[in-house]
Amino acid sequence: MWAFIHKLGSPKWFYRISAKLQPWFWVAAAGLIVTGSLWGLAFAPADYQQGNSFRILYVHVPAAFLAQSIFVSMAIAGLVYMVWKIKVADMAAAVMAPLGAAMTFISLFSGAVWGVPTWGTWWMWDARLTSMLILLFLYLGVIALRGAFTSRDSASRAASVLAMVGVINIPIIKYSVDWWYTLHQPATFTITSRPAMPTEMWLPLLLMVLGFYSFFIALTLMRTRSEILRRESNKRWVRELVEEGQ
């Protein structure tokens, strides 16, 4: 177990193993997302209440899931970096943050657009949308804090601490926003929670969710590899790798 963790922590080893894993995740992501999209857009039956506007669900929900998962992954990577001083964990956390912010933006945008046919307005202080908006600010805070330090080591540790503080707060924020919303807006019509979705509707959703997760893993592996090359550029193995590549 320890040997494995330390092996994984070696940038060189991670660079090799991720090269082998990466193509599989790209193939899975492309396959799942293309199948899920065609199925969700063209074959899944229209919703009896919302008609075809419910097809926004197939991008809104995976993006929202991923936005929250990425923040948790970022905090776990930060914890690993702080406890075991594994640099690869911090590199992964650094490249995850912009994708997480992009996913949060997608879920906010699609939620707002979905609001027009459902609520008749572009923005509603719906509990989910409000939580997502706060999550976006948390992402922007982590990205800005990392960028504000001149020393890379301080930047990494500060971003790790903030990600961990944020992840402890996310459930509290989510709970309190839910409570606040039910207080002010006695449960109207929430767009995503529906009773018993038929199989033809949720199967494509499952494919999309899995596809988005594969995409996240593939992109994180790819960008972490670049980050390793950038930060380890004066190491012998990187130089040899570059010379061989020529």
Binding site: S37, L41, N52, I56, V59, S110, V113, W114, P117
Partner: peptide, 8 residues
């Protein structure tokens, strides 16, 4: 609505 969400 559908195409702008999917597009973005």
């Amino acid at each position: 609505y559908v195409w702008s969400s999917w597009g973005i």
